[in-house]
Design a protein around this nucleic acid. Structure first.
Length: 198
DNA sequence: AACCAGTGCAACCGCTTCTTT
DNA sequence: TAAAGAAGCGGTTGCACTGGT
């Protein structure tokens, strides 16, 4: 059996106070991130290391964008979700200033409903040439699989074929889903080309 | 004004993955 | 190679807030 990451009876739970935020920010600014397990004690916080990490990553880290998602961000999330499934941290990694928790919450509270209203079942696979790119949250890429290098894109009247390395071919059949993707093994940069059906 | 239901989001939990020994 | 510990991740929960009655 693994030991718990902290003694629950000795730690605060629930919402963070300003003082706690300040202590955490100050400590990380001074010593940098890392060693979350020992951080609470060193920073004088009665919190679990996990809790500190979450608080820093999601709310205190500099450069975070707060507030409403833009239309371009929404589109990007929808497309990346179709491609990657519920891999929120990967999706958030493509949205500067957004966190995985924020993207996940936004998907669950806004985008899922929006898709349903549009007649798209977010749980059902987006059919891409008979190959599901995501199904019930499962991505077409396996969990340990690095994004493939996109080699070519062929466009036809109402679909496009994305040709990846290792002979992974994807045909998009959704008329309003026009992707211009550039994928590499180290980073996935995505440029979206809006060609919505008028 | 009080109550209730719905919603959104911050935080927690437990499992998985990664790293170190 | 295996085991143990740390970090990361996604699902879920709980609570504050809001709008309707």
């Amino acid at each position: 059996m693994r030991k718990p990451c902290c003694e629950k009876k000795e730690t605060n739970r629930g919402s963070w106070s300003r003082e706690e935020d300040q202590k955490l920010s100050d400590y990380i600014k001074q010593h940098g991130e890392g060693c979350w397990r020992s951080l609470p004690k060193a920073a004088g916080l009665r919190r679990c290391g996990k809790s500190c990490r979450l608080r820093w990553i999601n709310y205190l880290r500099p450069g975070l964008k707060r507030g409403n998602f833009g239309e371009d961000e929404e589109d990007l999330i929808i497309r990346l979700h179709a491609l990657l499934g519920n891999r929120w941290s990967l999706i958030a990694g493509r949205l500067p200033g957004r966190t995985d928790n924020e993207v996940k919450n936004y998907w669950n509270s806004h985008l899922r409903k929006k898709l349903i209203q549009m007649g798209i079942d977010p749980k059902k696979p987006h059919q891409l040439g008979g190959r599901a790119i995501s199904c019930a949250g499962r991505p077409f890429l396996s969990k340990n699989e690095a994004p493939k290098q996109l080699l070519t894109i062929h466009r036809n009247d109402n679909h496009q074929v994305l040709k990846f390395e290792s002979s992974l071919h994807i045909k998009t059949c959704l008329p309003d889903l026009n992707l211009d993707l550039t994928l590499s093994s180290t980073a996935l940069s995505t440029t979206l080309v809006e060609e919505r059906a008028s």
